[in-house]
Design a binder for these strands. Sequence first.
RNA 1: GUCCCCAUCGUCUAGAGGCCUAGGACACAACCCUUUCACGGUUGGUACCGGGGUUCGAAUCCCCGUGGGGACGCCA
Length: 471
Amino acid sequence: MVRTRFAPSPTGFLHIGGVRTALFSWAYARHHGGKFILRIEDTDAARSTPEAVQAIIDGMDWLGLEYDEGPFYQMQRVERYKAVIHEMLENGSAYYCYMTPEELERLREEQRAKGLKPRYDGTWRPEVGKTLPAPPDGVRPVVRFRNPVDGAVAWKDLVKGYIEIDNTELDDLVIARADLTPTYNFCVVVDDWDMGITHVIRGDDHVNNTPRQINILRALGAAVPQYGHLSMILGDDGQKLSKRHGAVSVMQYDEKGYLPEAVLNYLARLGWSHGDDEIFSMAQFCEWFDLGHITPSAAQFNTEKLNWLNSHYIKQADNSRLASLLAKRFNALGVSVSSEPSLDAVTALYKERVSRLDELAEEVKVFYTDPEFSAELLARHLTSEAQPALETFIDRLERLESWDAPSINALLKECLKIHNLKMPKLAMLLRLLLTGREHTPSIDAIIALFPRDTAIKRLKSAEDSGGLSGG
RNA sequence: GUCCCCAUCGUCUAGAGGCCUAGGACACAACCCUUUCACGGUUGGUACCGGGGUUCGAAUCCCCGUGGGGACGCCA
C-alpha cells in the first residue's frame, strides 16, 4: 500500500511550490490506490500560526486535493518524540551535548575561516575508550544523534536517480533542543515511520536532509521509504520565489479569477509531462502520474500559459457555475445584479473572450451599471452619417416585434440599407452607447440581452448628452 | 569555502544511441474568418551550454570545464 504525505510548516501562506509538491504527492497516492496524508509541521512554535494552518487547509480545499488522513499536528505528538529520544539515549544512538550556542558559533567561524564545511566536532560524542569532559554547570544540554562516521548513505531518488553522500559530510545533528522540544529532522523521521509513509515526495531543498533522516531511520530500525525530490519552481522572471519576491498565496489565484482546475492542470505540467498532452483532467493526471516523467531541473512559472489554460477552462465551464462565481464577485464589489439580463446569459456570451474571472466580471459589469465613456469617444462614433441611422434604429427598435438577436440583426441591416452605411459605422456607435466600450461581442447579441427599455434608454442617452438633437 | 543537484526554442517540455535536416504547447509574427475586439483556423521564425571521449552512428552514454541552483541552524 502506497502512503504519501504533504508536510508543510504553517509559517506563512501556501504558495505555488507547496501546492505542486502536494499535487504530485496526492496524485502518486491516487495513481496507486494508496493514501495521502496531511501533516502540519508546527514544531517551530515561534513562527507557526493558526492562520497559516487555516490557509493550508483552505488552499487544499479549494484545489480539491483531498487527504485521506490528517491533518496531523506535530505539536500534538511531542510525547511520542520524547519517548523515542529517551530510547535513543538509552541505547546509545543519541547523546547529550553541552556545547553552548556561543561555543558552537565560534567553532563554525573557525571552520569557515579554514575553508571547511562548518559542522559539530563531536566534543560530547561518546566513544569507547574516550573520556568525556565533565558537564558544565548551568548548561542545559541538547540531544544529538550519533551519526555513523564510516561509509556512505545512498538512495535511488525517484526523480534524480542515484545519490550517494559520504557520512563524513554529515555531523551529529541536534534532535532535541535544550528546552527538550524535538527538531524538524527528527520529527519527520518518527512521523514518516509511525505513519507508514512509503514514498516521500518533497522539495529539492530536502536532498541534504535525506541522508541524515535515513541514518536516524536505520538507528531506529525503521523501514526506509523511497524518496523523490522535486525541483523548485522559479518565478515568472526566473528568480527564486520568496516571500519578498513573487511568492503569493494560492488563494490569490482564486481572487484573481483562476479556476482551480486550470491551476492544477498548469502545475501538473510544470516539471512533469505525458508526451505532448497539455490539457487533461485530474482524473486523467492521476491515471498517468507515475513519477516517471518528472523533470529534474527547476521550472520557471509562466503566467501567460496559465492564462491560456484558464481561458480554456472558462470556456469549458458551465454558465451557471461561472455565473455564481461572478455573482460572488459583484457582491464583493457592491454591484447589484438585476434579474435581466441573467448572469447566465451574459456569461454565455462573454466567456469565450476572457482568460480570467476578474476580466469577465469587468466586462459583464456594464450590463448592471450605467456605462461610462468620454465625450471624445462619443464624438468619434456619433458621426453625422451615423446619427440619422441611429434615430431610425431607435425608432424601429421600439416597435420591433420579437426581441431576439436575429430580428435585431435584420433591423440593423435594414437601417444600414436605408442610410447606405457599412456595419461598423452604426455598430460601433451602438456598442459605445450600450456598453461604454468599443470592443464587445457581436452587437445584435448584446442588444438582445438587454431588456428593451434599458437598451432604448441607453441608446437615447446620446440625445441627453446633446449630440442628437443638436441643441 | 565544502558537499549535493541541474543544463533542448524567450518559457513549459517531447526525446531512454539511428524514427531528429530535433516534435508539441504558451508567447510572438503573418494570413484567413469577421460587425469592433476576441475566439477559431492556417502558416512561419527561434533551441540540443562548451570541449573531449565511447560508438559505424550521440540531444541521448562517460569525463572535464562553464553556468545556474540548493544545503551546510538548538528553522522547517
